[in-house]
Design a protein around this nucleic acid. Structure first.
Lengths: 146, 146
DNA sequence: ATGGACCTTCCAATGATGGGAGGGTCAAGC
DNA sequence: GCTTGACCCTCCCATCATTGGAAGGTCCAT
């Protein structure tokens, strides 16, 4: 099975499969005589695992941890649960931060008549300071959200 | 006023001030005889504008648009309002996507006894497929959320 | 004059992903 | 056998906003 078929079956692009190999998330597969990567069912299984974890918002590093736990039959479910719940917390922190931004903007927009006149509280707030909303300063972790 | 003081006053790091200049978000300021960038109050004002827009999650490109509108005294408030509301929508789409991930994970974790035993529905879901949750496929724009 | 706190430019890295160039390989159809 | 198109390979580059550092120049106080 060449990389293109593996990509189709797993839903992970060929580019990303090579990338995951490069960064050590998956082991380098066997090669055919022509140098093509050869994948089997267990590789596809692994790639699907990765794909689903990506869809849940895990980073490559976190997926690496999950895959070790997956392969380790003696691991405690508590370990997995802890990682999952930590991730839930991180995701919810992100939603709170983004929602805070959205709310501030919504308040500003609600006070903007939105017609042809130039005066606009949104621009004024950006220019002059935060009179309308955004009472607290945004915290760390915020930078990667844009 | 040197770049360090401008950074302190505006809350934008010296590194980022130079970057914003490089990408054309701000115009190159005057230079002293020694080659140091010289900032005045209007520059600080502009940097604070940028800082606040960043805190609201606008990208550099969007801020560029907002600054043009800011400088343009004849602009209609409707233009600003449209940009703001589009951004609110984008932010809320992001929160929905992240919340969907968090909910899926929460459901999985709720079914995981989380003790020393190895069987764990979270890992099983990742390995075998999406039996528990995540009924819909995640949409576009999702990739940048991690 | 020496040190420390500035400033300058240039280069690199982050994380996950896409795009493309330049070149090799394979299988089907002629 | 040759051509063609669809693969595959390895590199390199770009994204976006931000940080870090190196190498070197400047300013000011001691």
């Amino acid at each position: 099975m060449n990389i293109g078929d593996a990509a189709k079956e797993s839903g992970v692009s060929a580019k990303m499969i090579r990338y995951y190999e490069e960064v050590g998330l998956i082991r380098a597969p066997a090669r055919n005589q022509n140098g093509y990567r050869a994948y089997d069912k267990s590789n596809i299984h692994e790639l699907k695992f990765i794909r689903r974890a990506r869809d849940l918002g895990f980073t490559v590093e976190q997926i690496s941890g999950l895959m070790h736990l997956w392969r380790d039959r003696s691991r405690a479910s508590a370990d997995v649960k802890r990682i999952a719940l930590e991730h839930v917390e991180a995701l919810e922190a992100k939603t709170r931060e983004i929602e805070e931004m959205a709310n501030t903007l919504k308040h500003l927009a609600a006070n903007c008549h939105g017609d042809g006149r130039p005066d606009c509280p949104i621009i004024e707030n950006l220019a002059e300071g935060c009179h309308h909303a955004s009472p607290t300063h945004l915290g760390k972790g915020f930078e990667k959200l844009r």
